[in-house]
């Protein structure tokens, strides 16, 4: 499934770009993450998500697949698995940073749900993923503003 978000940040383009490429900082902006640590070129950590009474602990990694600072584009890949229920989430996230103070960030995510987590129902998961990404966008705006 494909999810799209846009956020406008009243900050210079370069600042926004810098925060995004600082993966530990960016990852901590995703609501529900914990134990974020550098891991090679990427970060590892755990994302706690609640879908009603069901609690998922998605442990995994985020890496930058490609980046083009001049064009303001980057592609991230996130892989995370929940050991308890059995299942995983994989997402390719395309970031496009345009404009300058205000800077606009477009986040397009292609999210795949694998294994038993899917039994929760695609619409439900889409909503949760949507919420997580919206939270991320909001946190990013605050983080950049604070720099």
């Amino acid at each position: 499934m494909r999810l799209e978000h846009r956020v406008t940040v009243d900050a210079p383009n370069a600042t926004v770009w810098a925060v995004l490429m600082d993966l530990p900082v960016a990852a901590r902006c995703v609501p529900g993450t914990r134990d974020i640590a550098l891991d090679g070129d990427g970060v590892r950590g755990t994302l706690d998500v609640r879908v009603g009474p069901v609690k998922l602990a998605l442990a995994g990694t985020v890496v930058v697949v490609s980046r083009d600072e001049a064009a303001g584009t980057a592609r991230l890949r996130a892989d995370a698995a929940d050991q308890r229920i059995g299942g995983a989430v994989r997402a390719f996230v395309d970031l496009v940073v345009t404009g300058d103070a205000p800077t606009e960030l477009a986040i397009a995510s292609d999210v795949a749900i694998l294994g038993r987590i899917g039994e929760l129902g695609q619409p439900l998961i889409a909503r949760q993923a949507d919420k997580v990404l919206a939270g991320f966008a909001e946190c990013l705006r605050r983080t950049v503003a604070a720099r």
Binding site: P53, V54, K55, I85, L120
Partner: peptide, 9 residues
């Protein structure tokens, strides 16, 4: 149903 599907423990 949630218990049977082992979605909650």
């Amino acid at each position: 149903i949630l218990l049977k599907q082992d979605l909650i423990r």
